[in-house]
Every structure is written in C-alpha cells, then in structure tokens.
C-alpha cells in the first residue's frame, strides 16, 4: 500500500467516524419528528471540531510511522485518479448545494439548512476519498 493510500485511509476512517455518529443521530432525530429540538449549530460545530482533531492526529500518526517511505506529491497516475475523485465529488457538491438552496427557498429552518450544507461538504469529501482509494486499489 502506497504512502498516499495510507493517508487516504487514515483520513477516511478518522473523518467518517465522528460525522457518521453526529449525522446518524441527527437523522434519527429528524425521522422521529423532533429534529428542530435535537439539532443545533453548537452540536454540529462540536462534531466538526472533534472530526478535525481526530483526522489530524490519525494523519500525523500515519505520516510519522511512514516517514521517508513516500511522498504526498502525486505522480501522473495518482494525479489522474485524484482528478477523477475531485470531479465526482464536485458533482455531489453541486447537487447538495442545489438541494440546500431548494430547502432554503421552501422555508426550512436555518439549523436544518446549515446541517444540509455541512453534510453536503462532508459527503463530497468522503466521496472523493473513496473514489481515490478505489482507483489506487484498482491500479488506474
């Protein structure tokens, strides 16, 4: 496994866990019909903060454990795979933004709007990571 792929795995696993927990709870609260009371901007900021810290620690651990064994500068194959990941995640991002604008236009609460746009960014980033890891595993 290349150094780049290890970093991507570390980012994916460490980044997914806190967000899955938070958005899973938020989704359940919405499904139960008490979304507006369960969701809060503060809770979202906490989840983002925890996610960021966990991600930084995981990436630093992987980088230190593999120091001198690789570079994060992509070669041409990795660059092509990275571009594919960015392209697909960009389409997801655009779709999420349009849906969020639609939700705002329909008069949904600001808390839900903020959660929707944040979820869109996180989902787009996770998509990019998954597409890149898949490409690196496949070889092209």
């Amino acid at each position: 496994m290349s150094f780049r792929e290890k970093i991507l795995w570390a980012t994916l696993i460490s980044g997914t866990a806190p967000y899955l927990w938070y958005f899973g709870s938020a989704g359940l609260a919405l499904a139960a019909g008490n979304g507006d009371t369960s969701l809060s901007i503060g809770g979202l900021v906490n989840a983002l903060f925890v996610g960021l810290i966990v991600m930084i620690v995981a990436v630093v651990v992987v980088a230190v454990a593999n120091r001198g064994r690789g570079s994060m500068i992509p070669d041409e194959r990795e660059h092509r795979i990275e571009s594919r990941g960015i392209s697909i995640s960009y389409h997801m991002l655009c779709t999420g933004v349009v849906l969020t604008i639609g939700a705002a236009w329909m008069g949904w609460s600001i808390v839900i709007i903020v959660h929707m746009i944040t979820f869109t960014f996180i989902l787009a980033e996770l998509t990019r990571l998954i597409v890149e890891i898949y490409g690196l595993r496949r070889g092209y």
Partner: peptide, 15 residues
C-alpha cells in the same frame, strides 16, 4: 520519478 505502484500498473497493462 513515479511510485512503485505506478510501475506495477504499467507492467500489468492496467495503466
């Protein structure tokens, strides 16, 4: 100036 994995992909005809 590429990674080992890229050489492997070229060698196997994947890339």
């Amino acid at each position: 100036g590429v990674t080992r994995q890229t050489i492997a992909a070229i060698e196997q005809g994947k890339y």
